[in-house]
């Protein structure tokens, strides 16, 4: 620090102007802001501005062209009282999220328990289980999924050949089963929470298990009294993450069923897209976007508020 200051005082006489500029650039406060400047600019331009302007648009009727026409709370009223399709899409989304998130995490945890030990073969298994997560979100997989569960699909023919089903049936084309195929696709991608769990399991000190063995605890007891409490921070992290991405799901439902049949798979974002970009009701779409923000924020807030009841942070 002292060295810096004396250097700049030497420079002072010669180039006072540039030296004060220099000092400013190297001032710690400013240095910090220089580094995070891209984030601040991006945040203002790509997040704050769109957020506020969509709030404004949500009170208007707007087709994307011309000037938005102020209609007050009409969009919100329409959503909850006049648009049964919206209510349906809300229901579908909740069913989707509340089925796939717990199942995906449960599978992830079970498989992580099996695979926590090292070894080459286990590592190869891990890779196989993780692969679907890597490619599962792509259009390519959605295209295949459509065929697998379709009228002429493998699943169909397989169930018939083992005698579980009598005639051909399109899982995707029927409103009772369409959502299930999309939920299964989502559960199939349990690889990334699995890796997070494996990392967490490795962090649990062996001494805890050893002590429990000495005290005569069996495997089941060890799982509930040691493994689960130690994993709660990771479960929490995964829950928040998966919940949010669940509400954002779009590509799969859009490609596989396009929201149909009879809106049975009309996930929130698919409906939002349809309203905003195929019928160009951008005011209504903005209102839907805001309700989604509120829903996700409330759910996240609920999760965070229950945190100190069940999440156990070791050293605190």
């Amino acid at each position: 620090m002292r060295y810096k200051r004396s250097e700049s005082s030497v420079l002072k006489n010669k180039k006072q102007c540039s030296s004060s500029l220099r000092r400013r650039i190297y001032n710690e406060n400013i240095v910090g802001y220089v580094f995070i400047a891209p984030f601040i600019i991006g945040f203002l331009v790509f997040t704050v501005y769109p957020l506020l302007s969509s709030l404004y648009l949500s009170f208007t009727k707007f087709s994307g062209l011309g000037t938005p026409e102020w209609i007050g709370l009409l969009n919100y009223k329409r959503m909850f009282f006049l648009d049964p399709r919206y209510i349906k899409s809300l229901k579908v989304t909740f069913v989707y999220v509340f089925i796939y998130v717990p199942l995906r995490l449960t599978f992830a945890l079970i498989v992580a328990m099996l695979f926590k030990a090292g070894g080459r073969i286990i590592a190869a298994y891990r890779t196989m289980f993780y692969l679907p997560s890597v490619i599962g979100g792509s259009v390519a997989v959605a295209v295949v999924w459509r065929q697998l569960w379709g009228y002429d699909g493998v699943i169909n023919r397989f169930l018939i050949s083992i005698g579980l089903m009598e005639e051909q049936f399109s899982f995707i084309g029927s409103k009772e089963t369409a959502l299930m195929t999309i939920i299964i696709l989502a559960i199939w991608q349990f690889g990334s929470p699995m890796l997070v769990f494996i990392a967490g399991l490795k962090d649990i000190p062996m001494s805890l298990y050893e002590a429990a063995t000495v005290d005569g605890a069996n495997g089941w007891k060890k799982f509930w009294k040691i493994t689960m409490p130690c994993l709660t921070p990771i479960i929490f992290f995964n829950l928040v993450n998966q919940l949010i991405s669940g509400f954002m799901a779009f590509t799969q439902a859009f490609i596989i069923t396009r929201g149909g049949p009879n809106d049975a798979t009309m996930l929130y974002v698919v409906y939002l897209y349809e309203k905003s970009f195929t019928t160009f009701q951008m005011g209504y779409g903005s209102a839907m976007a805001w309700v989604l923000i509120v829903i996700v924020s409330i759910l996240t807030a609920i999760l965070f508020s229950t945190q100190n009841k069940w999440v156990y942070y070791g050293n605190e």
């Binding site: 969509s54 903005s286 976007a289 923000i293």
Partner: peptide
């Protein structure tokens, strides 16, 4: 959720 910003 990034999709909520898509319209603006």
């Amino acid at each position: 959720p990034q999709q909520v910003l898509i319209i603006p």
